[in-house]
């Protein structure tokens, strides 16, 4: 049955249970580090840059592993999901960052 073949194809491309747990632990640790970092009393770039980096890493981990984006690229045309999502993110960041820049700098 075609459907079964398809499911097995999915099965092969999905991460293992262990991988899920590892990712979760990394996420939890990152969250803890983030919170700790915010209590360090730092200011400016030293405070914000690591927080943003950790946020992006968490984002990529959830999207790549839990949402299977990393693994979906192995199925036929699965990269399309990735491109749809990334295009939306890039669009959103670019557009809203521009808006914010026009407000903040007024130039």
């Amino acid at each position: 049955m075609a459907a079964e073949i398809d499911i097995h194809a999915h099965d092969d491309s999905h991460p293992t249970e262990k991988q899920y747990w590892v990712v979760f632990v990394v996420l939890a640790v990152l969250t803890a580090v983030e919170v700790a970092w915010s209590y360090m009393g730092l200011e400016g770039v030293a405070l914000v840059a690591p927080l943003i980096i950790m946020m992006v890493v968490k984002f990529l981990l959830v999207a790549g592993v839990f949402m299977h984006l990393y693994f979906d690229t192995k199925i036929l045309h699965g990269r399309l999901f990735w491109w749809t999502f990334v295009a939306a993110i890039i669009l959103a960041v670019a557009v809203y960052f521009t808006v914010f820049a026009t407000f903040e700098f007024g130039i």
């Binding site: 669009l91 670019a94 557009v95 820049a101 026009t102 700098f105 007024g106 130039i107």
Partner: peptide, 18 residues
Amino acid sequence: GWGVWAHHMFVSGLGPLS
């Protein structure tokens, strides 16, 4: 089409660089 919206706002006071 996504990079030109502010041309509706040229006189809204955006600032010369924008």
